[in-house]
């Protein structure tokens, strides 16, 4: 093997080595990013659950009734126009 070939092989090996390291670094970064996203996803999911429950609490008939009474509103009877003929 000539010296120039040997140098070529060594350079190629060095490049492969650098490429492997670069790929590993990227992989590490990607893994880290995925983990971060997984954490964020979990946190957001939990936040949604909490908000869902809060919405349900506000939408509950009891809460609406209390709010209506605080605002001085009353359940009004239906107007006569709402009286429809019975279904057969």
């Amino acid at each position: 093997m000539t010296t120039s070939r040997m140098v070529g092989v060594l350079v190629a090996l060095a490049l492969v080595g650098i490429a492997v390291v670069a790929i590993r670094v990227d992989q590490s970064r990607a893994t880290q990013r995925i983990q971060k996203l997984q954490f964020e996803h979990t946190d957001l999911k939990r936040e949604i659950w909490t908000q869902e429950v809060e919405i349900a609490r506000l939408r509950s008939p009891q809460a609406i009734r209390e709010q209506a009474s605080r605002l001085g509103l009353e359940v009004a009877p239906k107007p006569p126009a709402a009286v429809k003929p019975a279904r057969r």
Partner: peptide, 22 residues
Amino acid sequence: PLPGRRGRLLDRRLRVLAGSHD
């Protein structure tokens, strides 16, 4: 361990009767 969420109980108009919080 990563706990999931227990399924919700919804009324007929899909109002949440039982849910989960942290």
